[in-house]
């Protein structure tokens, strides 16, 4: 009888511990969803990888230039922001606020897209106009 009580007690403690571990985990998961994330886009072999990046508003995006030539990251529609030149081996980051298409103004065929909170934006197939870019 004593043994039965002892085993029951151990089982109850184990279940209790399990429960107390599960609840904080769920809370932690909720927090992860709300905490801004950091995403990396590699510029490699003259491409943005990945070329389409899904993020949440407020997340940070870091572009890392792994090519041997300079690149930049410039908003495509109105050139409202640009990284300016990112040298080989360099990087640049910004906080995502809305869905936007971007390109490299030095190599205009290189294009990418930021999709914020699932809101799609179109990428152009045209040659982007050559104008002065805005400040980052």
């Amino acid at each position: 009888m004593r043994v039965l009580i002892y085993v029951s007690l151990l089982a109850a403690i184990a279940m209790g511990c399990g429960g107390s571990q599960n609840d904080p985990a769920a809370t932690s998961s909720d927090n992860v969803q709300n905490v801004p994330q950091r995403h990396v886009v590699e510029i490699s072999e003259m491409k943005f990888v990945p070329d389409v990046l899904n993020v949440n508003k407020g997340d940070t995006i870091v572009w890392i230039n792994k090519d041997m030539v300079d690149h930049d990251v410039t908003e495509e529609a109105t050139h409202s922001w640009t990284s300016s030149k990112i040298p080989a081996g360099g990087s640049w980051e910004m906080i995502a606020t809305k869905s936007e298409a971007y390109f490299c103004s030095l190599h205009v065929v290189m294009k990418g897209k930021i999709v914020v909170d699932g809101n799609e934006v179109a990428m152009s197939d045209e040659l982007p106009s050559v104008t002065q870019c805005g400040a980052p």
Partner: peptide
């Protein structure tokens, strides 16, 4: 490594 740049 130079080929992708030439193609671009």
């Amino acid at each position: 490594n130079v080929v992708p740049a030439l193609k671009t």
